[in-house]
Amino acid sequence: MARLLVRPPSPRLADGELTHQQRVPVDPALARSQWDDYVEVYRARGWDILPLDTADEHPDGVFVEDVVVFFGDLAVVTRPGADSRREEIESAKRLLEASDVAYAQIDAPGSLEGGDVLKIGHTAYVGRSSRTNDAGIAQLRALLAPRGWEVVAVPVTKVLHLKTAVTALPDGTVIGYEPLVDDSAVFAAFLPIPEPEGSAVVVLDDRTVLISASAPRTAALLREHGWEVVETPVTEFEKLEGCVTCLSVRIRG
């Protein structure tokens, strides 16, 4: 069964960390409505929704992808690069323990955020960004090598996370808005797209992806390439360098 880890947005969402964007007003009520619609996309397709503990004191807590990453039956609890986000991992650990899920953890001096991890097959492309450092990447490589995974470090200097710049379609083709991609040549297949908001897609099944409603030209391009595309608005999260990938952790059973 496909499962989805999510956390509702905090009323303090507007106070979240910003690295590459200027702060603009965020509508908390609209953010909650958009989050509800986002979760409903999965629920309508039969996904089992697993909510993490609410964390109203953590403005960035809704971006749950950053605190835990799954590699098959192993969960890796991260160590966020932003000090303000470190306490978010505790609720993730409690949920994993209650669910009898095996997990490992990234420790100091390493830092790693799930938004920097792009999985294609058994290769994990990991962004070396302002939030993920070399020590964190080395720890992840040591954890995954015995399980047959390859870890490839990728420079990220123009956006917050690797998956802010690029994500992958169901066939492994990587898509991204080229002005924000440091090095597209590292990927075996790369498809440039026309909007920065279109760089993030979530694979719903072998033919379908979820994308921000802010990227209609990218949605049209992907449909021209034969993909089914579901669009959902996430404008309030995009104001905080968020996207459709970072609002959940997708686990396929």
Rank of each mutant, 00 (worst) to 15 (best):
R252P: 13
L143E: 04
D171Q: 09
W35C: 06
G61R: 14
G198I: 11
G16Q: 08
G121F: 03
P179D: 05
I175K: 00
L95S: 10
T123N: 06
L4E: 06
S99C: 10
Q139M: 02
A82R: 12
R12A: 10
E65N: 09
E113I: 13
G46I: 15
S91A: 10
A55R: 15
V186T: 09
S199P: 08
A55H: 15
E150F: 07
E228W: 08
K158S: 02
V117N: 01
E57H: 08
P155N: 00
Y103Q: 08
A188S: 15
F70W: 11
S99E: 15
R217A: 08
S199W: 13
P25V: 13
E178N: 03
K239D: 00
R79M: 04
V64L: 07
A145K: 13
V24I: 13
A108D: 13
L191Q: 09
A215L: 14
E224L: 13
R3E: 09
A188Y: 14
V77D: 06
A98M: 09
A92K: 07
E238I: 04
A200M: 07
T167R: 01
V6I: 15
V68C: 07
V126I: 12
E113S: 06
A145M: 10
P155W: 12
G253H: 10
V117Q: 01
Q22A: 12
V69T: 02
L144C: 06
A185W: 13
G136L: 05
H225M: 12
D107N: 09
D36L: 14
G148I: 05
A104P: 13
V64I: 12
P216A: 02
Q21Y: 06
S111N: 07
D73C: 04
S184G: 03
R250Q: 12
E197N: 08
E241V: 14
A31K: 03
S111G: 03
C246H: 09
W227Q: 03
S111Y: 12
L210D: 03
V26W: 00
D15Y: 14
S129Q: 10
R252N: 15
L13R: 08
Y103T: 03
T19N: 04
V26N: 00
V117I: 12
G242H: 02
L52I: 14
D116S: 09
A44D: 15
R131E: 08
P25E: 11
A185Y: 12
F63Q: 00
A165S: 11
E90R: 11
R252G: 13
H20L: 10
S214G: 04
V76N: 01
V244D: 01
L95C: 10
W35T: 06
R94N: 02
V234N: 01
W149N: 00
F63M: 07
E65F: 11
H58M: 14
A153C: 05
L13A: 04
V26G: 00
